[in-house]
Nucleic acid binder design. Structure first.
Lengths: 190, 190
DNA sequence: AACTTTCTTGAGTGATCGCTCAAGTATATA
DNA sequence: TATATACTTGAGCGATCACTCAAGAAAGTT
């Protein structure tokens, strides 16, 4: 008996993710979302409940995509090579609406207000860090890097470097590819 | 004949800087500023003209303070040691309202909107990068690091690492001191 | 075709945004 | 003490914020 919605939910979340990623949380108004998703307020709230709820879905999609890209690299190139390639891949992705990491942007914007989305962003960062850690551990099993290192420490530093790289890549006056290459190089010296 | 303002302008700018630094541009309302500066709207606009104008002053103060701290370190400890100490000093500063860099936060928040303050933040980042570059050059003259390296490339990477460190330091679950120590260590291997 | 159920629409809600300005107050000069 | 010159006050401006809801449109079932 019912009527189907005339949209693809996942498409909408992707478009919202791109807007939020580029403009940030406060910088994205409902007017912006209505324009991009081609939805009127009523449909929007029926479908997602609130701006924050959609933002949470957008961050989740962002993280899952990142994890998928990383594990695809690991499958095709091996653990160490994936970690070496990832920084360059991430900042050279032409389809991405921004170079900087959506999770770190969100965390920075909302952390001081104790906004739940800041904690959410942090949780996603922890998830990513765990993935990096697993790849470092795998690289050690592969004999690609020294087994003496603590994979968690390597992941912590790697994620920090990646965040810095991606902020720098947003600036037009910075040669981010060079930084990405240096990050990759430093992994060879482990 | 006139009447003097009953405030110290530099104090106000410092308090505004701390608010903006912690909460960001959109996250800091005029209500917040009025409360922190103990000023009513009329006095505020007579003194600063606009929220954005005060933000610009706040960023300038932020940058000058950073430059002063860095050059003080260089004077007391030498160029290389200053660069090695700076990351730890910056994230352990208890008086600071936030760990993350105000310039990168501002740039990230406002860049997508082509907001003038984003360009302003970028200019300050360039100034800081130049300071880092000068210190690397000095460290080479001192014979503290290999003269083969390009000081500008070293500064570029250093600034990127510093930005990542400072974002990470905002997270309670990350051992930022360990990252700072690794950044310092890597300067010894140059 | 009639009915039921869901989705869509868009005018409009109260709250908050950055900001203005006329009126009042304080202070230095004459 | 009178006057001139700021500085301070706070009610309130128009704009925008996230969001609501009553009414209408569309589609599956009978």
């Amino acid at each position: 008996m019912p009527r189907k919605p005339n949209y693809e939910r996942e498409d909408l979340i992707e478009r919202a993710r791109d807007l939020f990623w580029k403009r940030g949380w406060a910088g994205t108004s409902l007017k912006d979302l209505e324009a991009s998703l081609q939805m009127r307020p009523g449909s929007f709230y029926a479908a997602f409940g609130s701006k924050d709820a959609l933002f949470a879905l957008a961050m989740e999609k962002y993280t899952l995509d990142g994890q998928a890209r990383l594990s695809a690299l690991a499958r095709s190139h091996g653990a160490l090579e994936a970690l070496k390639l990832f920084p360059a891949v991430v900042i050279e992705n032409e389809k991405a609406p921004a170079k900087a990491c959506m999770l770190s942007k969100t965390f920075l914007e909302l952390h001081a207000h104790n906004h739940p989305l800041a904690q959410e962003a942090n949780l996603h960062l922890i998830r990513m860090e765990a993935d990096f850690s697993n790849l470092f551990r795998q690289a050690q099993k592969d004999g690609a890097i020294d087994g003496q290192h603590d994979p968690k420490a390597l992941a912590r530093r790697y994620q920090s470097d990646l965040i810095g790289l991606r902020v720098s890549a947003e600036r037009i006056d910075v040669d981010a590819k060079a930084i990405a290459a240096e990050i990759a190089n430093s992994l060879d010296r482990l």
